[in-house]
């Protein structure tokens, strides 16, 4: 059971010319076991939605609420949100020089679970997750995201998704910059997560390509900081054929 409810979320960011409103009232409910795709043109605020839900300090929440199973997410610190069951797969994962992947994964798992994982099963779990994502076993000794190729960074994000096992995953353009093979590997990882009981997924993407591999239950068109339209998977097909023009024109009026 997990339900992420976003109500009338308004978010601004500080710029040189003062605060700029980016999200202008976003309302979305990711029900238990549901996958929602958010599609939109560049600059529509898709990533802002992801990062503000995760608690990035750059963004200021000016209105609205976000709850996870009734708990007030916006009142939590960044790490409390993660421990409550939120996970953000980032578009640009950050390098942490000198910290090995295995140290990082174990530290994160310990933080999320509140206790250190049992060594024997943990090593097996990590190796299994890396292998399923086509990552070499020596990957664990490398520094987090340092010198990773674009594809390795994204696969590493999905390995974390598998191992940390959150309630709700927000995937911010996880498909961008991936070749078709890597896209399949990443999609398989996301689908394994979805197969588990009651997991929610918010899949943010610019392209419809990934939706061939991850079938969403709901598709939302995101334009100018708002959900401009919602529908089933067929909405993605329509966007594939017609693009965002219709929605952009409507938003400009």
């Amino acid at each position: 059971m997990s339900e992420l409810v976003i109500k009338d979320l308004q978010v601004s960011v500080d710029t040189e010319d003062g605060p700029k409103e980016i999200l202008k009232g976003v309302t979305l409910t990711i029900g238990s076991g549901e996958t929602h795709a958010i599609m939109g043109p560049n600059g529509s605020g898709k990533s802002t939605l992801a990062y503000s839900i995760a608690g990035h300090p750059k963004y200021t929440i000016t209105g609205g609420t976000v709850t996870l199973d009734g708990e007030d997410v916006l009142a939590m610190s960044v790490d409390e949100r993660a421990r409550a069951g939120m996970f953000l797969a980032m578009q640009y994962p950050v390098e942490v020089p000198g910290v090995s992947v295995s140290n990082f994964l174990r530290t994160a798992k310990t933080a999320i679970d509140g206790e250190a994982p049992k060594l024997r099963t943990w090593v097996k779990d990590v190796n299994g997750a890396l292998e399923r994502l086509n990552l070499d076993p020596t990957f664990g000794t490398r520094s987090v995201n340092e010198g990773f190729s674009g594809g390795e960074k994204k696969r590493h994000e999905i390995a974390q998704l598998e191992l940390l096992d959150p309630k709700v995953a927000i995937l911010d353009e996880t498909d961008s910059g991936l070749d078709i093979d890597a896209l399949k590997v990443v999609s398989d990882g996301v689908n394994r997560f979805r197969e588990k009981e009651g997991k929610g997924v918010l899949l943010i993407t610019h392209y419809t390509r990934i939706l061939r591999y991850i079938k969403p239950d709901h598709v939302h068109v995101f334009v100018a900081g708002r959900v401009a339209a919602s529908g089933g998977p067929e909405l993605a097909d329509e966007l594939e054929a017609e693009g965002y023009d219709k929605y952009l024109k409507a938003a400009a009026v």
Partner: peptide, 24 residues
């Protein structure tokens, strides 16, 4: 932010970054 978004507390994230900084 990256480390904390994985559940690691602020203080522990700082420790990890510093550990990495010198570890190299």
């Amino acid at each position: 932010f990256y480390l904390r978004s994985r559940g690691v507390s602020d203080a522990e994230a700082r420790r990890l970054v510093l550990h990495g900084f010198f570890n190299d």
